Amino acid sequence: MTTLFIADLHLDDSRPHITELFERYLASDDVRRADALYILGDLVEAWIGDDDDAELPRRIAHASRALRDSGVPVYFMVGNRDFILGEDFAARAGFTLLDDGTVHNLYGRPTLLMHGDVLCTDDVAYQTVRKQVRTPEWKANIMAMPLAARRAFAAKARQDSRAHTGSTMETIMDVNASAVAEAMRHAGVDRLIHGHTHRPAVHDLTLDGKPAERIVLGDWYEHGSVLKVTPEGSRLEGLS
């Protein structure tokens, strides 16, 4: 019995080998034998809408739907790069959409699942932008734009993101320990799984005097990264 977690693939036409790795992985025996696959956000570098007619969304939907049709549930949680992905694409891809901050019981252990960006509370500039772009009005304005204009907007947003990342201290862009503790305390769990920071690791914590665990998923910029959770425990593995 194994449940799989991935995040921060940032699939993009500029890195076709990673898209191919994603397709091979979803078609592999390792995944086809799993109890479930969870994708915790930032599946793509930029999502411009469920009506995107480019090849990449079609390939993603085909690979994911084939996995779901083989009997493996595919759960998806939006990240900061694909937060306007909606029910139309989810239906095509066979995704079961999850809210950020969902708690799922994994082999008897309730586990908090998050993308992770909301935990980076020290990055005030990012949190301000995040709040602005998550409003229904902002999303409606974006979706009213032609596809070509949305592609141009997404390209500019990626440039701005790289500039912000390059000029901000890494410690500011990491999760805030108090925010982590509060999220876990509010959810009533002793294990959190998230992505976003691209710093794969298993962190042992003490929460209200009791042992707890925070697991950070790796990104897929150079190679793949997966978390395997079993009744006996969990481990992070690389893919190539």
Rank of each mutant, 00 (worst) to 15 (best):
R15G: 03
E137W: 15
D208E: 15
H223T: 08
P211S: 13
D42R: 07
L192G: 04
R81I: 00
A154N: 11
V180A: 01
R59K: 04
F95C: 08
F76P: 03
T135H: 13
Y107P: 05
L236V: 04
G233F: 08
D13V: 14
L239I: 12
P110Q: 02
G71N: 06
I84A: 08
V31W: 11
E55R: 15
R235D: 14
S70N: 14
R130D: 04
R199E: 02
R235M: 15
G209E: 00
L106Y: 03
L236P: 07
A163H: 12
G49P: 01
N105Y: 00
A140G: 07
A163C: 09
D88R: 15
G218E: 04
S28H: 09
V74K: 07
V118P: 01
W220M: 10
Q127Y: 04
L113C: 01
V229S: 12
A179F: 08
A66F: 05
T171C: 13
G218P: 05
D82E: 11
H10V: 00
I142Q: 14
L98H: 03
N176L: 06
E45K: 04
R109H: 10
H115Q: 00
V226Y: 09
L106I: 05
K228R: 14
R32L: 12
A46N: 09
A27I: 13
S225W: 02
L192P: 06
T96H: 14
R33C: 15
A7C: 06
K156I: 12
D208C: 03
D69M: 12
F83Q: 04
R32W: 14
S178T: 14
M143N: 07
V202F: 01
G101Y: 08
D42G: 02
A27F: 13
A187Y: 06
E23D: 11
L98M: 06
R158F: 12
S28Q: 08
A183P: 02
H115E: 05
L113F: 10
L207R: 06
K210W: 04
K156P: 05
T121Q: 14
A187C: 04
Y126W: 11
V226L: 12
F76Q: 06
D174G: 08
V72A: 00
